[in-house]
């Protein structure tokens, strides 16, 4: 049994989907706990993310590893098995007003979820008021704003202003990502900027730990 579990980790880490899924099915027929199997797949995905961080793997590998996990979830839990309840998310994440790009947002959300974070996807072209509403509904401690066009800078700035003004000391930490850098971060008034999906996910883990968020500490196996 131990051998099957090790092979699953290695297949996922090597981005070998067919092999990984066949091993998961094999594990199920041998009576291995489905959640144990899924944890091995998750461990494989974490190795992929670590390799991505070290520059050994690339975005395509992360996208594929995330899909192997989704596939394994469906095999183990059935078609609806991957549906999570994000009623009290730790992160509200959306692409800002005037920008409809969802590619960076989606990949980062998938990565964050693999790090154990509970993320609410607010969608694209999200107005400052809509972000504020989501934050009020959820009380999320982190707000992530994505933007891939330069018109997004002003939308980010407006969102940051509104959130700071309306939520005051109860406001979340605000992280921006996409076509951003230090200068854009300073212009928008955001607290941090992230250069890629794992950078953003790890920053959230760190921030939640600093805030003493026990849910994160328990749920984030990848947190270093």
């Amino acid at each position: 049994m131990q051998a099957v579990r090790k092979l699953i980790v290695s297949a996922v880490a090597g981005i070998q989907e067919e092999k990984a899924i066949s091993l998961v099915r094999n594990g199920l027929t041998k009576g291995i706990d489905p959640f144990v199997l899924l944890e091995e797949v998750r461990t494989g995905v974490e190795i992929v993310l670590e390799r991505y961080n070290r520059g050994e793997y690339f975005l395509a590998d992360v996208v594929m590893a995330a899909d192997i996990y989704k596939h394994a979830q469906q095999v183990v839990l059935g078609p609806a098995g991957g549906t999570a309840n994000y009623g009290r998310p730790q992160v509200v994440f959306g692409t800002v007003e005037k920008d409809i790009h969802d590619i960076g947002k989606n990949i980062t959300i998938v990565t964050m979820r693999h790090y154990g974070l509970e993320v609410l996807d607010a969608g694209v072209n999200v107005s400052p008021r809509a972000f504020l509403e989501k934050l009020r509904q959820t009380g999320a401690p982190i707000l992530c704003l994505s933007g891939l066009i330069s018109d997004a800078y002003d939308s980010m700035k407006k969102t940051v202003c509104l959130v700071k003004k309306r939520l005051g000391k109860r406001r979340p930490v605000i992280i921006i990502g996409g076509l951003v850098n230090e200068v854009v971060c300073s212009y928008t008034g955001a607290d941090y900027w992230a250069k890629n999906c794992t950078d953003g996910a790890e920053l959230c883990i760190k921030l939640l730990k600093e805030r003493g968020n026990s849910r994160c500490a328990a749920g984030s196996r990848a947190a270093k």
Binding site: I15, E17, L59, A60, V63, M64, D67, I103, N106, I107
Partner: peptide, 11 residues
């Protein structure tokens, strides 16, 4: 779409 295409490259 980028994510589907990247998966095609593997599958």
């Amino acid at each position: 779409s980028m994510t589907e295409f990247l998966k095609d490259l593997f599958r």
